[in-house]
């Protein structure tokens, strides 16, 4: 195996370019290096003008999502040797506007995240003196998978529906809404329903399933959306049969 590898890195400098171009870099290809290590090497040793986001480099912060050889990946968890002998194409996440080089604009996602009210909503708050809301391991198990999301937006980059319809609330936000809907301590499912059962919510999803494949945390947003569809369909029939006082 050669000890260097070629990276084709997408560059976009809005002050000089009207659209992204690629720049070629040679970096060492060490066995223990991930794509993010190669980018850090470029930034430190070769070209300090390259811009990208990263923080924890251990798959927790969700900052370093990029498109590696066409696939949405956390670059901190994507080994260079898997792409040897190269070249490796590194681009910003798809479906988002590009601010600079590998940095995308995420405020649309951040706004959607807040819209689904991802916090515990109580109809009747009990006083602190009565202690915490208890939960059994089975009740925890019900939503735990959906609580593992790190907001890395790989699922949005993988989702063709989001690419075609920017209003689509999208995989991570719906999965997170389900995380709270399924939480035994939460009573806010109704408040989230109008937004989620809109045509820009669950009904926009055509179950491509790419979000689940892209997710580095096995959250399975596609499953969250399909389960919510089933629930929404049931409650539709319920409200049809019992027009008054429906659940």
């Amino acid at each position: 195996m050669s000890d260097t590898i070629t990276l084709h890195v997408a560059r976009y400098r809005p002050e000089v370019e009207t659209e992204p171009t690629f720049q070629e870099y040679q970096t060492p290809c060490r066995k223990d290096w991930v794509v993010l290590d190669a980018l850090n090497y470029i930034k430190d040793k070769v070209d300090g003008t390259l811009s990208y986001r990263w923080s924890c480099r251990m798959g927790i912060c969700g900052s370093c999502g990029m498109t590696v050889n066409g696939e949405p990946k956390l670059t901190c968890a994507t080994f260079l040797t898997d792409y040897a002998p190269g070249p490796v194409r590194v681009e910003p996440l798809r479906n988002f506007p590009i601010v600079r080089d590998l940095v995308i604009e995420m405020s649309d996602f951040m706004r959607k995240l807040v819209q689904v009210k991802p916090w515990i909503i109580r109809a009747d708050e009990k006083p602190l003196s009565e202690g915490e809301y208890l939960q059994t391991p089975e009740e925890l198990d019900e939503y735990k998978q959906f609580s593992m999301c790190i907001n890395c937006m790989l699922c949005y980059a993988a989702c063709p529906v989001y690419g075609l319809e920017p209003h689509f609330i999208g995989p991570a936000a719906i999965a997170l809404a389900q995380r709270y809907n399924l939480d035994s301590r939460d009573q806010g499912a109704r408040e989230r329903m109008d937004l989620l059962s809109d045509h820009t919510g669950i009904w926009g999803c055509t179950f491509v399933g790419e979000c689940t494949k892209a997710c580095p945390k096995s959250v399975d947003p596609a499953a969250a959306i399909q389960r919510y569809k089933l629930k929404a369909a049931l409650s539709w029939f319920k409200s049809f049969l019992l027009p008054r006082g429906a659940s």
Partner: peptide, 23 residues
Amino acid sequence: MSQTPIYTEYHPRWYRRRTSTYW
């Protein structure tokens, strides 16, 4: 319910790629 994405209002230089019909 969902407002227009407010993305580029003040940032005309952000680069946005349109999804190809043959995606």
